[in-house]
Simulated assay, not measured.
Amino acid sequence: MRDLPGYWDWAPGMRNEAERGPACSGALMHIWLTEGGQRYHSSWTTTDAEVTSRILEDLPDALLDNGERDPKHGFLIQYEDETRIDADGNPVSWYLVMSTPDRFFWQRLDRIGVSTRNPTMVRCPDPN
Rank of each mutant, 00 (worst) to 15 (best):
P125H: 08
E68A: 09
N90R: 13
R123D: 05
D88K: 04
N118K: 07
T120F: 03
N66K: 02
E17R: 02
D61V: 06
G89Q: 07
V114A: 14
H73Q: 09
G89R: 00
P22H: 07
M29H: 01
V97Y: 01
W32P: 08
W44F: 03
R2F: 01
P119C: 08
D88S: 10
D86S: 09
N90T: 06
M1P: 14
H30S: 10
H30A: 08
W106F: 10
G74W: 05
V114R: 15
P60V: 05
T83R: 09
S43V: 02
P5T: 08
L56S: 06
P127W: 03
R111C: 10
P119T: 01
G13L: 13
A87S: 10
P125S: 11
M121D: 15
E35S: 14
R103Y: 00
V122R: 10
R111H: 04
S43P: 05
T100N: 07
E68T: 12
P60D: 06
T83S: 07
D48P: 03
I77L: 03
D126I: 00
R69P: 01
V92P: 02
P127N: 07
D61S: 10
L28C: 08
G113Q: 12
L96V: 10
D9C: 08
P125D: 14
V97N: 11
P127K: 08
F104L: 05
C124H: 12
